[in-house]
Amino acid sequence: MQRVNMIMAESPGLITICLLGYLLSAECTVFLDHENANKILNRPKRYNSGKLEEFVQGNLERECMEEKCSFEEAREVFENTERTTEFWKQYVDGDQCESNPCLNGGSCKDDINSYECWCPFGFEGKNCELDVTCNIKNGRCEQFCKNSADNKVVCSCTEGYRLAENQKSCEPAVPFPCGRVSVSQTSKLTRAETVFPDVDYVNSTEAETILDNITQSTQSFNDFTRVVGGEDAKPGQFPWQVVLNGKVDAFCGGSIVNEKWIVTAAHCVETGVKITVVAGEHNIEETEHTEQKRNVIRIIPHHNYNAAINKYNHDIALLELDEPLVLNSYVTPICIADKEYTNIFLKFGSGYVSGWGRVFHKGRSALVLQYLRVPLVDRATCLRSTKFTIYNNMFCAGFHEGGRDSCQGDSGGPHVTEVEGTSFLTGIISWGEECAMKGKYGIYTKVSRYVNWIKEKTKLT
């Protein structure tokens, strides 16, 4: 034993070699072989497995989906700052455009905790909710729209109204504003409101030439003092309507412009014939205590009207009353817009006519005020429907199939267009061939041609 100890002390290297040989010859039971080890760690190889990531292109799944990435790591994937920024906006807080917040056709661009709407022409605001041009839906104005110097929408209202708090709607500024039905039992019968379409306001006024200088022999019209197929109006439903009495009662109609003036057809009036105007009328054979009678003290036909040349060209006249009318729910003026808007309103496509005229061709006159909704007829169809001249200051309205029309005794009465609950004068009943005849239409004086003249002559002093 002493000898062994001496050998170990003198030859430590020998001992180490012996131990190493023993270990190498022993069977290893701690580690699995290569094949079995792979069965336990069965993990798919990654895209760049075996390579240094710093030297390969980034992978979106590896960089940002398996674990949260930084902007720089995302930049490695896209290799483009702009594309990385677009991805980053949604990656950080989701897609803010998912709810489609942009209105009126706006395009949404996502941002971090926010979004941006790219608005089409005519709109602005956070969600493109603000109209900035009158060309689109009248700028959301209830009545009139004008573009300011910086191309912003400025709404306005006709006389007797003021802008509401929203700067879009119009509200009454006087007790009985024009064009409004205020009798409670008839307010439910107000005709369907007309909503502004998209309009090209630059070209809204037709490029028409008034044929002022045409000389033409007097034409022989049949029954051209021209509501057939209409309905009984309720008291106060058309408070701007008046009836004219002269040699015979209810020979023509008219509309209240203001307390002192009536507008009617020029062919209705004769110099030297006494005319009485009755406002607030409903049943011409009954006294309903809503009527107001006034005498006409002055007749002003349009300066281009000449019955000797043509009885229905420039067929418009103004009547001055001896005493002002007292405005109330049964006696209310009709609204008159400017030339541009009167023309736009007419193009809405349908209007209402009213009167006490004959209820059928050569038949009896109506006792109760009649009204009828009539569609506008395109000019080409209008011209083809008659052998008589249709001037540019006239328009056609009615039904091709016949059966409904204005008729004798309705002449001078109103053709009105309702705009968001307020009625505007767009025409004056003038003439036609018979009444409600198939293929024939009622012919009306186009008020847009005469609004400046009306307003100039009827100013209240």
Results as ranks from 00 to 15, higher is better:
Asp111Val: 11
Ile256Ser: 00
Tyr341Pro: 04
Gln216Ser: 13
Ser169Val: 06
Gly160Glu: 03
Thr218Gly: 09
Cys128Phe: 02
Val4Arg: 11
Glu286Cys: 06
Arg140Cys: 07
Lys45Gln: 03
Lys446Leu: 04
Gly412Arg: 04
Tyr305Lys: 03
Ala279Ile: 00
Ile316Cys: 02
Arg162Pro: 01
Val263His: 01
Leu19Asn: 02
Lys311Val: 07
Leu244Cys: 02
Glu433Cys: 08
Gly413Leu: 06
Asn147Cys: 08
Ala192Glu: 11
Ala265Trp: 01
Pro375Gly: 15
Gly106Pro: 03
Gly412Phe: 07
Gly253Leu: 10
Thr332Val: 13
Glu35Pro: 14
Trp88Tyr: 09
Ala265Val: 03
Tyr312Pro: 04
Lys446Val: 02
His361Ala: 08
Glu270Thr: 11
Ala266Lys: 03
Gly179Pro: 01
Glu73His: 01
Leu52Val: 05
Tyr391Ser: 15
Pro239Asn: 02
Leu103Asp: 12
Arg62Leu: 00
Pro333Arg: 03
Lys126Tyr: 14
Arg294His: 02
Asn36Cys: 05
Glu288Leu: 06
Val331Pro: 00
Leu367Thr: 15
His400Trp: 09
Glu259Ser: 08
Glu193Phe: 08
Glu285Cys: 06
Val153Arg: 10
Ser114Val: 08
Cys28His: 04
Tyr91Trp: 04
Asn151Asp: 11
Phe360Cys: 09
Gly351Met: 03
Leu346Lys: 03
Val174Glu: 09
Tyr391Ala: 12
Asn452Phe: 05
Gly439Ser: 12
Val30Gln: 14
Gly398Trp: 04
Thr158Phe: 04
Glu61Ser: 03
Leu244Glu: 01
Val451Tyr: 06
Tyr305Ser: 02
Ser49Ala: 06
Val248Cys: 05
Gly254Asn: 00
Ala337Asp: 00
Pro375Asp: 12
Leu244Asn: 01
Gly432Tyr: 09
Arg75Ser: 07
Lys457Cys: 09
Gln185Pro: 09
Asp315Gly: 03
Lys39Ala: 12
Lys457Met: 15
Ile210Arg: 10
Ile334His: 00
Ser385Met: 09
Asp95Thr: 12
Gly409Ala: 11
Lys89Tyr: 07
Ser187Pro: 14
Thr458Asn: 01
Cys119Met: 02
Glu73Tyr: 00
Lys234Glu: 14
Val243Ile: 12
Thr190Ile: 14
Arg3Phe: 14
Gly246Lys: 05
Lys146Ser: 08
Ala266Thr: 02
Arg62Asp: 00
Trp431Cys: 12
Glu418Leu: 10
Gly179Tyr: 01
Ile40Tyr: 09
Leu41Tyr: 06
Cys335Val: 00
Asn393Ala: 05
Ile214Arg: 09
Tyr312Cys: 04
Pro12Gly: 13
Gly351Asn: 06
Ser385Cys: 08
Leu189His: 13
Leu327His: 04
His289Gly: 11
Ser354Asp: 01
Tyr341Glu: 06
Asn100Phe: 11
Leu24Thr: 10
